[in-house]
Amino acid sequence: MAEDVTWIQPLLLMIALGTVIMLTLKQARDLKKLQEGTGSKERIITLIDCGEDRKERDFKEGDYIGKQVDECLNGVIVGIYAVKEEKGKTKAKPRRAAP
C-alpha cells in the first residue's frame, strides 16, 4: 500500500523557515560582536635597560623609547611593545627580562 507523503511539503517549509530564523539570529549575533569589538586584550610592556640587566614593567603614560628613568641606575627605556594578554592571567609584577 502506498505511504502517505503529504507531510513532506509542510516539513520542508518548516525547515526553510527555521533556517531563515537561524541565519537572522546569527547575523544579529555577529553584529553584536562587531559592536563590542573583536580585538583581544593586550598588555603594553616597557623594557628598561639597567646596564647589566633588563627590567620589564607595564607601560605608563609618558614613557618613550630613549627616555632616561630612575627606576634603576642609568636606566633607559629601550623598548615598548604590546603582548597579547593570556586568559586568566593577572597583571605581572616588574621582573627581570632576558638580556
Binding site: E3, D4, T6, W7, Q9, P10, L13
Partner: peptide, 17 residues
C-alpha cells in the same frame, strides 16, 4: 486508514510552493 495531515495544511503548503 492511515493518519494524514488536514487538507488545509496541504493546500497552503502547495500554494506556497
Amino acid at each position: 486508514a492511515q493518519a494524514s495531515l488536514p487538507d488545509w495544511i496541504s493546500a497552503i503548503s502547495q500554494l506556497a510552493f
